[in-house]
Amino acid sequence: MSYKDILVFLDGSPDNEARLDFAVSLAKTLGARLTGVDVSSEKAFEGEWSDRASMVGELLDSKARASGVVSRFRIADRKSPGWKDFFAHYADLLVATQPNRESSGKILPSVPEDVLISAGVPMIVLPHRSRSTRRIQNVVIAWSPSGQATRAVHDAMPILAQAQKVSVFAFDPRSDETDADIKLLSDHLLAHGITVEVDQWPDTGDLSVIEALFASRAMEDADMIVAGAYSHSRFRETLLGGATRDLLHQFSVPVLVSH
C-alpha cells in the first residue's frame, strides 16, 4: 500500500500555509500527487481573510512547483452539501487542521469532522497554529483492539513503514489466557517490517485516556499520533475510552485518524 493521491483542504486562515507546507512535504516524501481543495466560505472573502483566501490556488502552485510535486487545484461547491463526495472519496489521504473558533463561518462547516465521517479514507489533522513541517520520524499508535484503531493502523502503513521509531500506547490493555493483545499487534506489524516499542498504561481512574497518552513516555519527541475515530457518527462515540472530539481539539502534534 502507498499514498499516490493526497488531498489538502485550503482556506484563508492563518493555518493554511503551514498545512500546505506539511502536505507538500509529505507528498514529496511519498511520491504522491497533491490536490488542493479550496473550502473557503463566502465570508472568507470579506475582511482580514480576503487576500489570503483569494491566493490559495497560486500558493499551492508555487509551493508544489518549488518542491517538484505534481499538483492540481479544485474549488468546493459552496452551495452543495454533497461537495465533499466529489473530492474526498477519490484520494488516499486527507490533510486538514483541527477545528477552531477563528475559522467558524469562514470555511465550509463539514471540514474536518463531517468529512472524516463520510470520506472512507484516513485524515491527518494538524494542530491549530502548527508551524512544524519536519519529516515524520517518530509515530505513536494509540491502540485499542477495535475496528477503528485497526483501520487506522492499516491506513497509516506507508507512514509507519518510513518512520524511524514506532511506539504503541495501550490504555488498560486487554488480554486473554492465551495471547496478549499487544503482542499480537507487535507480531502483525513485524510481518510488515515494522518494529515497535510498547508503553502500557494501567487505568487507575486518575487520568483520562487522552491525558494518559500525552503524559506517556511514548509521546516524547512524537511527530504524529495514529488513532481510530468515532464508532458511530451520530453520537461521536469514543476511542480508547476517551473522546475523539477531545483528541481533535486538544493536541500538539498531527493526528492520523480513520473512521
Rank of each mutant, 00 (worst) to 15 (best):
L34V: 06
D172E: 13
D206L: 09
V198F: 07
I136R: 00
A212R: 05
V111D: 01
V111W: 03
A66G: 10
D199T: 15
F73N: 02
A149H: 10
A88S: 15
K63S: 06
A149T: 10
S50K: 15
F22C: 13
D114E: 15
L184Q: 06
A163R: 09
S71T: 14
Y90H: 14
A163I: 06
A218T: 03
W201K: 12
L20P: 05
Q250A: 05
S104Y: 14
K63Y: 07
K165D: 07
L184R: 13
I136T: 05
P158L: 09
A180V: 04
A180C: 06
L93A: 09
A170S: 15
V56L: 02
G205A: 06
E211Q: 15
L93N: 07
P99L: 08
A96Q: 09
S50P: 01
D114C: 00
K4R: 13
V255Y: 00
P127E: 05
R217D: 12
A227C: 05
S40T: 13
S40I: 05
V257D: 00
Q137Y: 01
A227V: 09
R19C: 04
D15N: 15
V166M: 03
D206G: 00
A91Q: 10
E220P: 02
L108N: 08
R19V: 08
A243K: 14
I141Y: 09
T204C: 06
N100L: 03
T178L: 12
R65C: 09
Q164M: 02
F9I: 01
L26A: 09
G31C: 09
V37N: 03
A88Y: 00
H249Q: 05
Y230E: 10
W83S: 04
W201Y: 15
S233I: 01
A152V: 09
V121N: 03
V70P: 01
S54D: 11
W143S: 12
H259I: 08
